[in-house]
Nucleic acid binder design. Structure first.
Lengths: 339, 339
DNA sequence: TATTTTAATGTTATCGGTAACATAAAAATA
DNA sequence: TATTTTTATGTTACCGATAACATTAAAATA
């Protein structure tokens, strides 16, 4: 700002070499003599040279930056869930010397094709899109121009994605309850504009069938991935005389909402009703009773998506990319045998 | 990738105007005739033109991007605390059409001067540094070159900063306990390489003095802003025969750690010992008993820091910038009158 | 020693925009 | 009508790097 920043040319002048030789030193081409390299580095240090990465990007036609679209929802925009994905992504980008651009976005409100604009802007070499919605047609445009992208937590066979194994997760949850002796298992769904929610719902249904358990429509309610909505929706469910003995919730926040309703009715978790969540967010282990839930390895999902994106960028692999990461059941205190 | 991206020149050719005229349309200079503007926009849409923001940055000598250094600590790297700051920052940057670059960093490990490299790289027009350490000399380099920066949660009068009013926060906490009737108030400090921790500690001491309460060295322990360390440190504190009736903890995680130790000893919160935290992270309201704590308006801190940084960038204001944001005591269930 | 290969450096053009200045045509003023 | 001002557009140079090709000097080989 104050002092104009030194450029390659400044060094070249002082070292009495061409600008190109200096460039070679800083882009580590290893074809500059030892003496010249040292002389140049010395001058660079002295005058405080740092490469202009914007100029480099323009010339190289790559930015060594990846963009991440992050949903702006729930509590402000980032819950701990997304935070962990980001953490995993950043571990990988740092390792390979890439920068990270963040694009918080309200997927529902935003109508212009921001993905395409960013893809075309040369700001980033590839993008990761976290939790896009099922009907988001803009993803097609990325595919059409063959721009490197990965969807995280959006499973769709015609796109590149990295996702948790939601089908397995829901199956584990239902089986766990079944093993404990539950036969009347209700389900709280998330917003069905996310494949997460759809996959968990379908897997719940399929697992019930394969276990020959009763599948009642009234036992499937929609909490829209919101604690409050789950609380409200559960009122109806819990009015019935024929109460379920267990409720499997599509995420932990909803599980907490449902538990609150249960307590309000003077019932106990897990004595009267067992609860299983999904995600294993930090709070799950802090509440009382601590929540039995399906753990997703969020930071691994982040890492994997970044690795695959970099491989796409560097043409080590080709689309389509369909990657499922493992999930595990974490058995805590919100589940027990039914009375 | 597949198709080469169209440039201004492509449009200029088709529209039979100079490249400059097209440039004027997209940089919204409003000095191009209506007909030409429409013609150009039509062609641009047809051939799918999007400006190359890297080239624009190089020419403009500004990137319309701000960088955020985020501490990579505790749970992976981002806790909900930092998440909210980021959210506030992003609200402002989006409003003013700035992009956001994220630089997760381990302030302790990283020894090279990444701040300066980034500042000199032209990638960003200014940077926000969240929770830098007290002895971080690299900040001086930013100041020296007069590069726009703001420290968040690091109060130092020789730097630009936006911080919560920690002094007031600690005072409110101690006063609250005093008002309830507590006279024996212990303190769990955070890492003293953060001004947060220092300010809270000093304010605790000063408030005790002004209330003429007993200030015992043994009642000040260090939990290093870690739940586990606070748990360990509190073992010693809670061995004493002369137990405090209340413990004020420098953050919520440490408060939880201390409570765990208290429960382990068969004592109750708040019946035997009252607990106050600091920060008001999400978990604080979920645990039982819910935690009385000092609420920081994190997203506002983020907003304010971004606003001030943009003002610095656009030379609407000049350093130094010293901004304190308000804090509030949230009275929940972990505090009560002493027995 | 003559010739080929390799290593080190230089030259030129370009990446895709924009600033600054120049110019021509149209509109406003004298 | 002549002159000045405004509006619309064009020309040239440059932002700071790198790719691709060219050249020279030194080392290796014949």
């Amino acid at each position: 700002m104050a002092s104009n920043k030194p450029t390659l040319q400044d060094i070249a002048d002082k070292a009495k070499v061409s600008r190109m030789t200096v460039s070679r030193v800083f882009s580590e081409k290893n074809n500059v003599s030892k003496e010249t390299t040292e002389k140049i580095k010395k001058i660079a240090k002295k005058i405080g040279y740092h490469p202009n990465l914007i100029a480099r990007s323009l010339s190289n036609r790559k930015s060594k930056t990846i963009g991440v679209f992050v949903p702006k929802t729930r509590h402000l925009f980032l819950d701990i869930y997304i935070t962990q994905i980001l953490s995993g992504i950043s571990d990988v980008t740092q390792e390979f010397d890439y920068s990270l651009m963040l694009f918080p976005i309200d997927y529902k409100k935003e109508k212009s094709d921001l993905y395409l604009s960013i893809a075309m802007s040369h700001l980033v070499d590839g993008i990761i899109l976290i939790k896009t919605k099922v009907n988001d047609k803009r993803i097609d445009n990325l595919k059409a121009i063959n721009f490197p992208y990965i969807l995280v937590n959006h499973r769709n066979n015609s796109y590149n994605f990295v996702d948790a194994n939601n089908v397995k997760g829901a199956k584990l949850a239902v089986q766990h309850l079944h093993n404990l002796g539950h036969r009347k298992i209700a389900f709280v769904s998330g917003s069905l504009d996310e494949t997460n929610a759809i996959d968990r719902l379908n897997s719940y249904k399929n697992t019930l069938k394969s276990l020959k358990l009763l599948l009642k429509k009234e036992w499937i309610i929609n909490g829209e991935f919101s604690k409050e909505k789950a609380y409200e929706a559960s009122k109806e469910l819990l009015k019935s005389k024929n109460l379920p003995t267990a409720i499997f919730c599509s995420d932990d926040y909803m599980a907490i909402g449902v538990m609150e309703r249960i307590w309000e009715m003077g019932l106990s978790v897990p004595n009267d009703i067992s609860i299983v969540g999904f995600d294993d967010i930090e709070i799950a282990s802090y509440i009382k009773p601590s929540l039995t839930t399906v753990h997703q390895h969020m930071s691994k999902i982040g890492e994997k998506s970044a690795q695959l994106l970099l491989d796409l960028i560097n043409k080590k692999i080709k689309p389509p990319i369909h990657e499922f990461l493992n999930v595990e059941l974490v058995d805590r205190a919100s589940t027990s045998r039914p009375k």
